[in-house]
Design a protein around this nucleic acid. Structure first.
Lengths: 249, 249
DNA sequence: TGAAGGAACTTGTCTGAACAAGCCGCCCTT
DNA sequence: AAGGGCGGCTTGTTCAGACAAGTTCCTTCA
């Protein structure tokens, strides 16, 4: 039983993606849509707010809403799960576990994961491949309370996040992502088959469950050219921000 | 006359940032806040939705809202304007114009800017500095309809976007950003004082006005370590997405 | 002591109404 | 023919109420 406003949003999204409304075209008015779906104007506004946050449509007071793009955006889960994203894009994602062992948390890990000093974390190093091509090196510290679940997973597990959700009901709900560029270390270079010092796109992210409890702190290093991050925003919604780097601290 | 829901959001944001509610703490209930501000519950929900989209608070049906972080997020304008962002962060932003001339649009520029083939664009190359330190190389193609405005700006202009808004009423409203890593070319290397081939964080972005009409297509290259991009998201709102790169096309 | 049950609380969804603010096109004037 | 002004349309903001769905916590029972 999906909510009505979600259904309306899906209907509109389909129409936009299928080209029924071209880029730049004006959408029907809110009251129009309300009549069409037998909904109130408030419900329609929830639907269009959803599409606005996806960057699909724009609006100005007084004028009809317009279509900004006609490309699919993806879900939260696909940002946290390399495997889910790859599947959605039509790639074959595989991975090789290179390390999986417990050790004491570094000060940064303890801080990010809200763990006491000297708590144990589960340290996992994986090489990720798309269609057999090495694309990303992933270094994850799992919080102690999820470590047993991760340790129990088979070595050939394609998506740890998927498996945790299925087996233990541990689901990701919130995420924070830090994106920058770093030179490849010698390990990175060997694994990704690039020269040492060549550019890698780094995505560090903290994943939390619905209670706000941190699950994992991960550093992903993508081979240059393999992945681009994509953000849409507008006045009023600015999900992405710059942060100054250590260079200027 | 700011809207009531914006005022409520600002009040809550201040409380969170000041530490009145610790990270992980529960916020007052919606009806509680509605009483406190003499507002209806719907208005309070608009306020908390704003903070949720900023990644500041999280929610689950049935349970009280919780504080996820206590850091400031910045506005849309600061993402599009290097100068505005720098000012907000307390840095002195300067820039050097290295080129400013009209030329024919490349096929990609024509496509991004929704211009006909062989239309003219204004090509601007700038070196951006923070506190005198070279940090970013910016290559922008301005659409023909804004070119005269940009050409009229003084050479020492710190923020083109600010000046365009003031002088000609041309305001940025929507943005799309593509982020990846690239090796420094020889020009980049000389300007940013790094070695050729060393990692740069690249942000390409298209800026449009309220009608959805493209204003500029820009490629910014940040020196590694100088800037980190930061995104928060949760189930239901995923502003950031990965895109496959040319490597796999 | 521990577990099950239920009541009270809280967020999620939806309605219908009203007014404000801004945009657009038509008509009228010059 | 060009320009200005006005009225209708559309989005933005706010309200009060209702029910659904999920959480929390206390009480009661085994």
């Amino acid at each position: 039983m999906t909510a009505l406003y979600v259904e309306i949003a899906e209907g509109l999204r389909r129409s936009i993606l299928s080209g029924e409304y071209a880029v730049g075209a004006r959408l029907p008015s809110e009251s129009d849509l309300a009549d069409r779906w037998s909904a109130s104007r408030g419900t329609v506004r929830q639907a269009v707010a959803l599409l606005t946050s996806e960057g699909l449509i724009g609006s100005r007071q007084g004028a009809r809403r317009i279509v900004l793009r006609r490309e699919r955006r993806h879900s939260f889960a696909e940002l946290h799960s390399f495997a889910q994203w790859a599947r959605a894009m039509g790639y074959q994602a595989t991975s090789r576990f290179l390390r999986r062992e417990r050790r004491g948390a570094t000060p940064e890990e303890a801080r990010r994961l809200a763990l006491p000093e000297r708590a144990d974390v589960l340290d996992v190093l994986r090489l990720r491949l798309l269609d057999g091509e090495p694309v990303m090196v992933e270094r994850t510290a799992y919080a102690d309370w999820v470590a047993p679940t991760v340790e129990a997973l088979p070595v050939d597990c394609a998506s740890i996040m998927d498996s945790m959700a299925e087996d233990a009901g541990i689901v990701a709900h919130y995420g924070e992502h830090l994106i920058d560029a770093v030179p490849a270390g010698s390990d990175d270079a060997r694994l990704l088959r690039v020269r040492r010092g060549s550019p890698l796109l780094r995505q560090r992210h903290l994943t939390s469950n619905p209670d706000g409890r941190p699950i994992e702190w991960t550093e992903d290093r993508y081979r240059a050219g393999s992945v681009t991050f994509n953000v849409s925003n507008s006045v009023g919604t600015a999900p992405l921000v710059r942060d100054p780097g250590a260079l200027l601290m």
